[in-house]
Write a protein that binds this DNA or RNA. Structure first.
Lengths: 270, 270
DNA sequence: TTGCAATGCGAACAGTGTTCGCGTATAACC
DNA sequence: GGTTATACGCGAACACTGTTCGCATTGCAA
């Protein structure tokens, strides 16, 4: 008897393997959500999927690889949320990539942000914070302590995910720039960053090539940093002793300030 | 014979205890510097000071307490560096507090920043980044992954240290505000933060009480966030794949932009 | 059917943080 | 002075970790 007719181009063994691989990721993600990255125990993951601890190593070479996978996945999830909030055109990640079963990103409670570029930029910034607050342990996994010796492989999945995050964050700003509505700060104009930062929005992200001048590129990065700084301080608890009631108003005000600095909101009368 | 004459008001036993306590801190700090916070091993610390692992627990209740001590100490060290860079009047921390032997903060390679308030603010921002880059593992200890369940005691040493960092960071900006040179962003003016954030610069820090309006307070926080975000992204390696050559120019440009936004530098001709 | 590779498991190893019980040296008290 | 209580340090042990190894078993291909 010849080989059993394969379903979907792969034998049932490969199918099974991918299924338990996904199980492992889901279990790991749950563990991280519950106990943080440092609290991820290989034995717990194994127990969750009904395996022995040793069995896990048939699928993953080390605990660190498990974390790396979660990191890459986390970037993609965050990027999806940002894209959705900013109404980018790219239709999600490639369908075989979202290996972890995450709930599909839901439109933020805030405004739909369909039209104006300022609204879209605001929506993205708020979505960034929203995701961080809703997934603090994953946020810490992505942006917290780096593994001391570890550097992400230059073109590994984590770097690609990160690129998608950057692109999703930058998209409304780039749209504003195309409409010539983006005010680039003078201090950045004189910057000569050379070709070093070209890769951020190029290739495969669908933002339209490398016609972006360095000053705009720099502006994207500083804008991201401005939002990220605020979010990091809040999510990591460094504002707890200042804002027992939560610092959402401060963040939203800072976003408004940021948008006006970018020239996307009318300058208020002095 | 009566009790041996005590030296400095404490018996030699207490003196010995404090000495080995300091030894423990130094050893721990070295370990953290070398292997990161996650790599701090009680047994390594014990080996470094020539003790058994169990002996360490005569001085410290847990590994986590060791880390907590280092955190508090780190805040003070960072605050000292900022103060020195910003030329604050407070003469260092109280002399019994600096339990860890750290090299005395050295004046930044940058300008002395004695006079103008803009220079002082710039110096503080650059010092913030400098310290982070020079002490990446300590920076991660202070601002990286929070211990999932853990919240710093409301008035513990870590909170006090954090307050000193905030105060040192804010000092030049507050000076500018007193000189009525600080431009408070309109988006922050409408903010009603109430009494929630009063404690940041009050009590014992020596910045002159609570006469600071909420909008200025908010501006201090967002300014800190703006600097912190950039530094965090850089130190934690999230700019590596964009800036193989280092992103110092970007940071310095962003600081210039920040200073002009604050009204401390003349607006460049459009 | 035979053979090979994939898969899973239990046991083991080195390492971790932490506790316990034992001595010993030091300080305080009479 | 002697006596007593306390602080200190240590080795052994416990429960736990990530990871490896050898042995079965199972599924697939020739």
């Amino acid at each position: 008897m010849a080989t059993i007719e394969e379903v979907g181009g792969e034998g049932r063994r490969a199918r099974q393997r991918r299924a338990t691989m996904r199980e492992l990721k889901v279990a790991s993600l749950d563990e991280v959500r519950e106990h943080g990255a440092a609290g991820l125990r290989v034995r717990s993951v194994a127990r969750r999927v009904g395996m022995s601890a040793a069995g896990v190593y048939r699928y993953v070479s080390s605990r660190e690889e498990l974390l790396t996978i979660l990191i890459a996945d986390g970037y993609h999830d965050l990027a999806d949320h940002l894209r959705l909030a900013g109404r980018g055109e790219e239709e999600g990640r490639p369908p075989d990539s979202p290996v972890t079963d995450r709930p599909a990103p839901v439109v933020s409670t805030r405004a739909p942000a369909a039209g104006d570029v300022a609204e879209r930029a605001r929506a993205v910034a708020l979505a960034y914070r929203r995701w961080a607050i809703d997934h603090p342990n994953e946020f810490a996994l992505l942006f917290g302590d780096p593994i001391p010796g570890y550097a992400a492989p230059a073109e590994g999945p984590t770097t690609q995910g990160m690129r998608r995050v950057g692109a999703a964050f930058a998209e409304p700003l780039l749209a504003a720039w195309r409409e010539e509505r983006l005010r680039v700060h003078r201090a950045l104009s004189s910057l000569e960053l050379g070709e070093a930062l070209a890769p951020m929005t190029d290739d495969a992200v669908g933002l339209g090539g490398s016609g972006i001048p360095p000053a705009v590129h720099a502006l994207l990065l500083t804008t991201w940093g401005r939002v990220h700084g605020q979010v990091t301080l809040e999510v990591f608890g460094h504002h707890d002793w200042i804002f027992p009631a939560g610092c959402e108003p401060l963040f939203e005000a800072e976003v408004e300030a940021l948008l006006t600095d970018l020239g996307l909101l009318p300058e208020p009368a002095q």
